[in-house]
Design a protein around this nucleic acid. Structure first.
Length: 134
DNA sequence: CGGATGACGTTAA
DNA sequence: CTTAACGCCATCC
């Protein structure tokens, strides 16, 4: 059953890379799924990023912070579509949650979308060289 | 195995 | 602005 095991590990590695990239997005900045996929070493697989985030473990639900001293607050709310639009349907709880979190970080959201030109995250050289081993 | 779906992207009309 | 088409791939039925 090594193939299954390897497949599982490979998938885990992809998720880990995606979560890593997502987690290193600074406050007040947003990134698109395609950009995350690209930085995570998965060019053209933006959908995979969304899939990974949808399969995201309980790490996103960072409630009960008292029993988890070193929780992993996945910054999924800083991930938007390439055009700066919120990935969720307008009116959905997830969308409201994401918009709220973004506004909490000084990111302006107008009509369910963000000015990607203004808040688009552009990783600096140090991040590219150090965190991504690029 | 094939069809449909999805927290997507880009280009074209 | 909207629609459509194609690409790309994991997952479900």
């Amino acid at each position: 059953m090594q193939s299954a095991k390897q497949a599982k590990q490979a998938k885990h590695a992809q998720h880990a890379a995606i979560f890593k990239v997502v987690n290193l997005i600074p406050e007040g900045k947003v990134a698109s799924y395609g950009q995350i996929a690209d930085l995570a070493g998965l060019p053209g697989r933006a959908r995979l990023v969304g899939k990974a985030l949808s399969m995201a473990p309980e790490e996103i639900t960072d409630k009960t912070a008292d029993s988890a001293p070193e929780q992993k607050p996945l910054n999924w709310h800083r991930v938007l579509r390439a055009n700066g639009q919120i990935a969720f349907a307008k009116g959905s709880e997830q969308a409201k949650e994401q918009i709220g979190l973004l506004q909490q970080e000084n990111v302006a959201v107008f009509n369910h979308r963000v000015n990607i030109k203004e808040f688009g995250w552009q990783p600096d050289m140090h991040t590219l060289l150090h965190d991504l081993s690029f």
